[in-house]
Write a protein that binds this DNA or RNA. Sequence first.
DNA 1: AAGTTTATTGAAACGTTTTTTCAATAAGGG
DNA 2: CCCTTATTGAAAAAACGTTTCAATAAACTT
Lengths: 145, 145
Amino acid sequence: MADLNAPPMAQALRDAGYRLTQPRLAVLQVLDENDAGLNPEAIYDRGRAIYPSLGLVTVYRTLDLLAELGLVRRVHSEHRCHSYASAGTDRHHLICAGCHRVTEFPCNGLDALIEAVRQQTGYTVTEHLLELTGLCPACQASQAA
Amino acid sequence: MADLNAPPMAQALRDAGYRLTQPRLAVLQVLDENDAGLNPEAIYDRGRAIYPSLGLVTVYRTLDLLAELGLVRRVHSEHRCHSYASAGTDRHHLICAGCHRVTEFPCNGLDALIEAVRQQTGYTVTEHLLELTGLCPACQASQAA
DNA sequence: AAGTTTATTGAAACGTTTTTTCAATAAGGG
DNA sequence: CCCTTATTGAAAAAACGTTTCAATAAACTT
């Protein structure tokens, strides 16, 4: 089982005690090669180009596992929340409404903001979700033309 | 058509040019009386106690309409994004992981944070989503006992 | 109050997304 | 190589959401 070209997330999977199967590697590769959020069916379609026996169920299971391990995150919108994108060390998604590209950004200052909310409301805060949506520079440029 | 006890959102609906039907009022009342995020089926069950002929399809349609008007918002989580809660003037949800209560909070400082991201990335930012999850004071107290 | 207009309804049917079941397969260890 | 068992994928099922359309009811007009 050669892992010379395995995406970086593969090591994290192995380190967590999971097996590196061909279907999982195909899913990982699709996620690695695409910076737009992709829904399970799109991942399935692209994954079958890499591993033709890939099953849609496996895509769902793999995404769930990766999400559990914090390696991917769901991409949220008001209408649909079906897409997933890779999750790096930066925690927050910046989503282009034009090309659907998903970029991560660190959000300095959010800790202070959360602390203020904690003091105002008495809530502990254990999880937070922040997504910003707008147009990336490339889409801004092409819309201006 | 008496609206003596109509929830506040009813006026917003009427002002937007929509009819205040019994099914819609039932949905509005359910949302008004519950501070936990509720999924469509839960709203349907509770709504039928108010208006027995209520249909599930109507719940979905009413939620869509209310969301379109900014009167309710979807509640997001990593696993499921099926719940809705009332939306007031404050924009952001604070969700209790214990009792599922959804509270809104204003988030002073987020504008500055978004501006910093804009300058770092070149993105315009037209929408933002922020949710904080933790334990409310009541659940903290009951867990400590 | 009665009549008219038309927005809205709900059940049935349908479409989409996600999960379960289970025999078969394959990853990884000895 | 053999063994263990995690994982797979197709079929089936469950869950979530939308469309169709005749009937109903909200709101307006007279």
